[in-house]
């Protein structure tokens, strides 16, 4: 434990996890904005429907996001991290296996080179 520079009356753990960003120094807030792509909205829907089925909670979603670490936060997009977390939760809940996922991903890839072409039309 160490003393907070701003509030020396409080102890705070030095081993703050990477996602606990409040108070860190950072640059100007970027104002880029993108419209959500269909695949991103579908990831969001998978999270909501998967939770509604009782396979995981928002805490399960967050645990996997936080366990991915800072590198994933810097290098992956928001919904890329979400789909990875949703997948991890489904596998942990025993909804499907890694083998089933791998086989299905191969099947999807074989359909085409774009998101549109890879749909099971």
């Amino acid at each position: 434990m160490s003393k907070s520079p701003d509030h020396p009356e409080h102890d705070f753990p030095e081993a703050r996890r990477w996602h606990d960003m409040g108070g860190d120094a950072a640059g100007p807030v970027p104002n880029d904005q993108h419209d959500f792509a269909l695949w991103e909205k579908r990831v969001d829907a998978l999270m909501i429907l998967g939770s509604a089925r009782g396979h995981f909670t928002v805490d399960g979603l967050r645990r996997c996001l936080e366990d991915m670490g800072e590198k994933a936060f810097e290098e992956m997009t928001y919904y890329e991290r979400w789909v990875a977390s949703v997948n991890q939760n489904f596998i942990e809940a025993g909804v499907y296996t890694l083998e089933e996922l791998g086989a299905k991903m191969e099947e999807v890839k074989a359909r085409g080179d774009t998101y549109g072409a890879a749909q099971n039309a």
Binding site: A37, R53, K109, Y115
Partner: peptide, 27 residues
């Protein structure tokens, strides 16, 4: 969207796969 015509990414592939597996399993 137009940007869905970009090359299929690993994570997009995973999204399609998860969605289809869940539908096949009746979830």
């Amino acid at each position: 969207r137009e940007d869905n015509d970009a090359p299929l990414s690993y994570w997009q592939t995973m999204e399609i796969a998860i969605r289809e597996i869940m539908i096949e399993k009746g979830e």
